[in-house]
Design a protein around this nucleic acid. Structure first.
Length: 303
DNA sequence: TACACGTGGCT
DNA sequence: TAGCCAAGTGT
């Protein structure tokens, strides 16, 4: 079936997009910590957890602290989960800290303390999804697997499909597309994976793409089509944070992190006036395991 | 599939 | 300045 889409994919492969991006990345990129030679797989895993929906600039200092304190999975597994939540500080989405702690326990118990390199084994770890599993396999172990994040999705949408935005995720199709563009040898494939992410983050950005600096501008289907406005299904809108349950949860958890002792319910009550919403947020934190009740007080989880 | 889930910087 | 956006995952 020679669909228009199949033709687009073939054209992209013929243009050598994967090879071009790999060469562009190899010629120069930001010296991010997890790209350093010899950076441990555990460090890559921790960085990928922290980078889930969190900008690079906010991750870098926190990552250094974590790896100094917990240089290997067994070290993190040896402390209570609440310590992970506390050290997570204000990176956001604190259940990532809980998942990372649980992952460290699983790695210690099931994988002899070594971060697995098999995709299926990685996917079995709590908090590790399709993106993180492939990122660890590709970047920590040099395995030739397609890595697709929001940046890669945007580059693929524009360069290959000729549309301005990636739209709703179609994981299987996008993985297959990235796979088809990956250079054959593993080292170059890794450069292509990292390069596509770097390209999407620094050049082919969501709001203001800088096509003058793009290594694949000549092969870009979106550019060739005259940058048509996006007409596909709208991406789901993010709901306002102010006044949301998320804000209440964040405020409560911030108080728990700051206290070595359980925080009295009376103090928690001062954090949010609306009692119904406050209790809902508190119940959510307890259900998620981010907090535990101690008599008439609340604390970070100790086990 | 759609939605919940933190936080802060940028335009 | 209000909304957009950020190396996603779990349900």
């Amino acid at each position: 079936m020679a669909s228009a889409y199949a033709e687009q994919v073939q054209r992209a492969a013929d243009a050598g997009i994967g090879e071009s991006v790999a060469a562009w990345f190899a010629a120069g990129h930001r010296p991010l910590p997890w790209r350093a030679t010899g950076f441990p797989a555990w460090g890559v895993l921790v960085s990928e957890f922290m980078l889930q929906q969190t900008p690079v600039a906010r991750v870098i200092p926190r990552l250094a602290e974590w790896l100094e304190r917990w240089p290997e999975p067994a070290a993190l597994a040896a402390v209570p989960p609440g310590e992970a939540v506390r050290a997570w500080d204000r990176l956001g989405y604190p259940r990532r800290a809980l998942n990372l702690h649980a992952a460290s326990v699983a790695i210690t118990e099931r994988h002899a303390g070594v971060v697995p390199e098999d995709i299926e084994a990685l996917l079995a770890l709590p908090g590790v999804g399709p993106y993180t599993a492939r990122a660890v396999a590709a970047f920590a172990y040099g395995i030739r697997v397609p890595v697709v994040d929001v940046n890669v999705r945007r580059v693929l949408a524009r360069a290959v499909r000729g549309v301005g935005e990636p739209g709703p995720a179609r994981t299987t199709e996008e993985l297959a597309l990235m796979e088809s563009l990956l250079p054959a040898d593993a080292p170059t494939a890794r450069l292509a994976n990292a390069g596509m992410m770097e390209l999407g983050q620094t050049v082919c950005t969501a709001r203001t793409p800088d096509c003058a600096r793009c290594p694949i501008a000549a092969a870009c289907a979106w550019r060739a089509a005259g940058y048509p406005a996006y007409t596909g299904p709208a991406a789901p809108r993010q709901k306002p944070y102010a006044g949301s349950d998320r804000e209440v949860r964040g405020r409560i958890l911030r108080e728990l992190r700051a206290s070595e002792l359980p925080v009295p319910a009376s103090r928690v009550a001062e954090l949010w006036a609306d009692a119904v919403q406050r209790e809902r947020a508190l119940a959510g934190l307890l259900a998620d395991g981010l907090a535990v009740a101690v008599d008439d007080a609340y604390a970070l989880p100790t086990a």
